Simulated scan of single mutants.
Amino acid sequence: MKITITGSLGHIGKPLTKKLIDQGHEVTVVSSNPSRGASIQKMGAVPSIGNLEDSSFLTDSFMGADAIFTMVPPNNYFDQGLDLIAYYAGLGKNYAIAISKANIKRVVNLSTIGGHLEKGNGILKGAYYVEQTLNTLPTEVAITHIRPTSFYYNLFGYMETIKSEGKIFANHGSKPIPWVSPLDIAQSVAEELTHINADTRVRYVVSEELTGAETAQILGQALGIPDLSWQIVSDDMVSDHLKSIGMNPNIAEGLTEMYAALQTGLLTEHYQKNKPEPGKVKLTDFAQEFVQVYRNNH
């Protein structure tokens, strides 16, 4: 198959590209970073370098593909002028235009848990708009929205307080948190990309469910900090902290709302009714990577 993936060689894109190439597929990797071209070629894929906000570039990148993987790349949460929701919505429209013009019939889109919600999900509202836009494509376009849960690597955001106070502060965590590894996401995406006749649907991806206390215990054991604890604090404390370190205020409030919705269960209501089999990568596996990054940064 000829498969085009967006997202460059990131946490999901790199293992996904390797998996698809190992399976014998012809893979084109879309990236906005010219310096990634050589790395993409080294993996055996074809680089397509350009601006995702250029729908003509996307159309050219998608042309001739049997299936495509769409995702909205991360942006800078500390950019004070960034309208994150508009950024998502804009790329969603560009993807829809390019899919139509390139006559693509199979799309696997990276969404998120909470992607079914129009409100109350904070920054995840952007993913909702992308889903809704892609769902307006003709019915002959088979779309699967991949909805991963909370990424393990979000835990990197707590490194400073782990070091300074031996604590993780969050406004959620008394209920099980559904964690996920990018490796398990890549596996699910690869499976969906190669199922051309799949109906439009949603697929959740999760690796392991753990409470905040259980999460802290596993990380603490790996780090050699046996007393590492997960402390649940107020929404205001989380929001104020994010703003104090320079995060865009709207994004800080959106992140806080997102995590609050995880605590109340709003974010996970649809996931709970459509829960998948857990993936293979557990927090004990990710903890080894966390330890390496923690030691390199401290």
Rank of each mutant, 00 (worst) to 15 (best):
D184L: 08
A198P: 02
R201I: 00
F169I: 04
Q217G: 03
S207H: 13
G212S: 07
G212W: 04
Q187M: 06
Y158F: 14
H172P: 01
S188F: 00
G157F: 07
A190H: 11
F151S: 06
V206T: 14
V206S: 15
T215Q: 07
L210A: 03
P176C: 15
A216C: 09
V180A: 13
E192Q: 15
H195P: 01
E208M: 07
K167Y: 04
Y152M: 08
P182K: 03
T149R: 14
H195E: 10
W179G: 10
K163N: 06
A170C: 09
Y204N: 02
T149Q: 06
L183E: 09
E165A: 13
F151P: 00
Y153G: 01
L183Q: 03
I196V: 13
L155I: 14
E214Y: 02
N171S: 14
V205L: 10
S150Q: 15
K175M: 06
F151L: 15
T200V: 09
G173M: 03
I196N: 05
P178E: 08
Y152L: 07
F156P: 01
R201G: 10
R147G: 06
E192H: 12
A186K: 10
F151W: 13
N197Q: 14
I196T: 08
Y158A: 06
M159F: 14
E160D: 13
E214L: 01
A198G: 15
R147C: 11
G166A: 02
A213I: 08
Y158D: 07
R203C: 09
P178I: 10
E165V: 06
I177C: 05
V206F: 05
E214C: 02
I185H: 00
D184C: 10
S207A: 09
I177K: 00
M159C: 00
V206C: 13
L210N: 00
A170T: 03
F156A: 00
T194V: 15
I218T: 12
A216G: 11
G157Y: 08
G212K: 05
T215P: 07
G212C: 05
E192K: 15
L210Y: 05
L210S: 10
M159W: 01
Y158C: 03
V202K: 09
Q217M: 06
R201F: 00
I168P: 02
N171E: 14
V202N: 14
W179M: 05
S207V: 08
V202A: 04
E160S: 13
W179D: 08
S188W: 07
I146K: 11
